[in-house]
Amino acid sequence: MDFGPHLLLASLEGAVTAAILALTAMGLSIVFGVMRVVNVAHGEFYMLGAVIAWWVTSLIGGHPAIGFVMALGIAPLVVGLLAAAADKLILQKINYDPDRTIVATIGLLYIIQQTTLMTFGPDARPVQPPFNTRLALPWFEYGEGGFAMFWPWGLSITSYKLFVIVAAVAILTTLWLLITRSKIGLIMRATQLDSETALAFGVPVDRVYMWVFGLGAGLAAVGAVLVVPIQQAHYLMGHDPLLLAFITVIIGGLGSLPGTIIAAILIGMSDGIISVFFSPTLAKIIATLLVAMVLVFRPQGLLGRSA
């Protein structure tokens, strides 16, 4: 493929990656920002979202869109409730001590993963997208005969992948409004700034933590429901999103939601675009090192305040 179309295709793919990443990382970022804890089980909540989506769609027959919409409603809810319960039963008991939270959530990771393996099984299971048309994309070039349009071989995207980008933007905008304009958001921000003062002003900090933890997991699940028609539900699928989401949150700057979005776009797009210039594995190595270097030279992250 020529350079131009190749770059366009890689950018589109990068945008899809960035959209999903923004959703999963946003969940982690909120938890991180408000509660200051590392949730290692975040990837497993993502995986659960995908598995529940498969389960819902395979129970409901008819047009795939019906099952998909149901899954989009049910999966985040179930996952969010589970996470809130885990918070109440475990994290609250250990007082959100940083080290202990890491071990406890690693334990949670194993519990969720293994339970899924025993019930759902080891196979990767597909979910049918609600719609999926291949859209061939044109390319313009200035040649001898002037400006010409043509259809390069392979240059295409599917309608569903475009939908994922749009959906992610819509969900993130809603979330933004929720946090900045609603009372729930105000309470969240107050707890984030100073949990003790918030407590003094009658904010039920424990309960806020519980629902924030649930909300974070729910967002991961939303990302998973969106991604599962492209990829498949598999009990080990939470691993890479966890790492990527982590990296995104830190690069964006701890506790900065806009930073998380910018970092997600940066990481997702660079993953796509760098792949144009280097062989696949080398591109991954370079992309990883580049992102690491961002932190080395800007330890507080892109939009984080310096310590």
Binding site: L9, E13, G14, G154, V276, P280, K284
Partner: peptide, 14 residues
Amino acid sequence: AIPPTETSFTKYFP
């Protein structure tokens, strides 16, 4: 050669 951690592939097909 596709890196083993990869989950999306279209970007390599060009």
